[in-house]
Amino acid sequence: RCGYYVEKKKRFCRMVVAAGKRFCGEHA
């Protein structure tokens, strides 16, 4: 899952990502 920290939401993104990727499409 995406490891991007969403500052405005004060939590991690947690969106599912493709195999081998660290971030989702929105945060890549």
Score class of each variant (00 low, 15 high):
Y5T: 03
V16Q: 10
G3Y: 11
F12N: 12
H27A: 05
V6D: 12
A19L: 09
G3A: 08
V16L: 07
E26G: 11
G25P: 10
C24V: 01
A18W: 01
G25W: 05
F23L: 12
E7V: 05
A18Y: 03
K10E: 12
R11F: 13
K9P: 10
R22Q: 06
R22V: 04
G3F: 08
V6A: 04
Y4D: 07
G20L: 13
G20Y: 03
Y5H: 02
G25H: 06
M15T: 09
G25C: 11
V17N: 08
K8M: 13
K8T: 12
A18G: 06
Y4S: 00
K21S: 09
M15D: 04
C2N: 02
C2W: 13
K8L: 12
K10L: 08
K21Y: 05
M15N: 02
E26N: 05
K8R: 06
V6L: 11
F12S: 07
C24K: 00
V6S: 14
G20M: 08
A19N: 05
H27C: 10
V6G: 02
E7N: 08
H27L: 15
G25Q: 06
K8V: 07
K9H: 15
V16T: 10
A19S: 09
R1G: 13
Y5L: 11
K10C: 01
K9L: 15
F23K: 03
A19F: 06
C2H: 00
M15K: 04
C24D: 13
A19Y: 03
F23D: 01
G3L: 09
G20Q: 02
K10R: 11
R1C: 13
K9R: 08
A19P: 08
E7G: 06
G20V: 12
A18E: 12
G3S: 09
R11T: 14
C2V: 03
R1N: 15
K21T: 14
F23N: 02
Y5A: 01
F12T: 04
G3I: 06
R1A: 11
Y4P: 01
K21W: 03
E26F: 12
M15V: 05
G20T: 05
K8Y: 10
E7I: 02
K9S: 14
V6M: 06
C2P: 00
V17W: 01
K9E: 14
E26H: 06
C2Y: 02
M15L: 06
E26Q: 09
A19E: 14
A18L: 13
A28T: 14
Y5E: 01
C2S: 00
C2D: 01
G25A: 07
G20C: 09
E26Y: 01
E7Y: 05
R22I: 15
G25Y: 15
Y5K: 07
K9Q: 15
K9W: 15
V17E: 04
A19R: 07
K9V: 15
K9D: 14
K8N: 10
G3K: 02
A18T: 14
G20I: 14
G3V: 12
R1Y: 07
E26C: 11
V6K: 05
R11V: 13
R1S: 14
E7A: 09
C24G: 01
F23V: 06
R11C: 09
A18S: 11
K10G: 08
M15S: 14
F23R: 06
Y4T: 03
A18N: 04
R11P: 03
A19M: 03
V6I: 15
G3R: 03
E26D: 08
R11M: 11
E7L: 05
V17G: 02
R22P: 13
E7S: 04
E7D: 03
V17K: 03
K10D: 07
F12A: 03
G3P: 08
A19H: 04
G20D: 11
A19I: 04
H27S: 00
C24S: 01
R11Q: 14
R22E: 12
G25V: 09
V6R: 06
G25N: 05
E26M: 07
C2E: 02
K9C: 13
M15Q: 11
G20W: 15
F12W: 07
G25R: 05
A18V: 03
F12L: 00
R11A: 09
G3C: 11
C2G: 01
Y4M: 02
G25I: 10
R22N: 11
K10A: 09
R22L: 10
K9Y: 14
F12H: 03
F23T: 08
C2A: 01
A18H: 12
E7H: 03
K10T: 02
F23M: 05
F23G: 01
E26R: 05
R1K: 15
V17R: 03
F23C: 06
F12R: 03
A18C: 11
A28M: 04
V17Q: 04
C24L: 04
R22M: 10
C2K: 01
V17L: 09
H27G: 00
K9T: 13
H27T: 11
V17C: 13
Y4G: 01
Y5M: 04
Y5C: 03
A18K: 09
K9N: 13
Y4E: 13
K8F: 08
V17D: 01
K21Q: 05
Y5P: 04
V16A: 05
A19V: 06
C2I: 10
E7R: 04
Y4H: 02
R1M: 14
E26V: 12
K9I: 15
C24E: 00
A18I: 03
A19T: 08
G25D: 10
K10F: 06
R11N: 08
R11I: 13
F12Y: 13
E26P: 08
A18Q: 05
K10V: 05
K10I: 04
R1L: 15
K21G: 11
R11Y: 12
H27E: 00
A18F: 06
M15E: 10
G20S: 10
K9G: 15
Y5N: 01
V17I: 01
R11S: 12
R22G: 07
C2T: 01
V17M: 07
K8P: 07
F12K: 09
K10H: 14
M15I: 07
V17S: 06
K9M: 15
K8W: 11
K8Q: 13
V16R: 09
K21C: 04
M15C: 06
R22Y: 08
G25M: 09
C2M: 08
F23I: 00
R1V: 15
R1E: 10
K21P: 00
A18M: 04
E26K: 03
Y4C: 01
K8C: 08
C24Q: 00
F12Q: 00
E7Q: 12
K10P: 01
Y5V: 07
V16G: 13
R11K: 14
C24R: 00
V17P: 11
C24H: 00
V16S: 05
F23S: 02
G20R: 04
A19C: 04
R22T: 12
M15P: 00
F12M: 15
G20E: 09
C24A: 00
R22W: 10
G20P: 06
V6N: 07
K8E: 12
R1H: 15
Y4V: 07
Y4R: 00
V6W: 08
Y5D: 01
G20A: 08
Y5R: 03
V17A: 12
F12V: 06
G25L: 11
G3T: 14
R1W: 05
E26I: 00
F12D: 13
G3M: 10
M15R: 05
G3H: 03
M15A: 09
C24F: 04
E26T: 04
Y5G: 01
F23W: 09
Y4N: 00
R22F: 15
Y4K: 02
F23Q: 00
C2F: 06
K8G: 14
R11L: 13
R11W: 02
H27R: 08
K8H: 07
A19K: 07
K21D: 08
E7T: 10
F23A: 03
R1I: 14
Y5Q: 05
R1F: 15
K21I: 14
Y4F: 10
F12I: 10
A28V: 15
V17Y: 00
K8I: 11
M15Y: 02
Y4W: 04
K21M: 05
A28S: 10
R11D: 13
A19D: 05
V6P: 02
A28P: 02
V17T: 14
C24W: 12
Y4L: 06
K21V: 07
F23Y: 03
R22S: 14
K10Q: 14
K10N: 11
K21N: 05
E7P: 02
E26A: 10
A18P: 03
G20K: 13
V6Q: 14
G25T: 09
G3W: 11
V6C: 12
V16P: 15
A19W: 02
F12G: 09
C24I: 12
V6F: 14
E7W: 01
E26W: 08
C2R: 02
R22A: 09
R1T: 15
K10S: 10
R1D: 14
H27D: 00
V17H: 04
Y5S: 02
E26L: 08
V6T: 10
E7K: 02
G25S: 08
K21A: 11
Y5F: 15
C24P: 00
K8D: 12
K21F: 01
R11G: 09
K21L: 07
K21H: 06
G25E: 10
Y4A: 10
E7F: 05
V16D: 07
K9F: 15
V6Y: 12
G3D: 00
V6H: 07
M15G: 12
M15H: 09
C24M: 02
M15W: 05
Y5I: 11
A28R: 02
H27W: 11
K8S: 14
R11H: 13
K8A: 13
E26S: 06
F23H: 08
V16W: 06
G3N: 12
G25F: 12
E7C: 07
Y4I: 10
K9A: 15
C24T: 01
F23E: 04
A19G: 09
K21R: 07
V16E: 13
A18D: 11
Y5W: 12
A18R: 04
H27V: 07
C24N: 00
C2L: 08
K10Y: 10
K21E: 13
H27P: 03
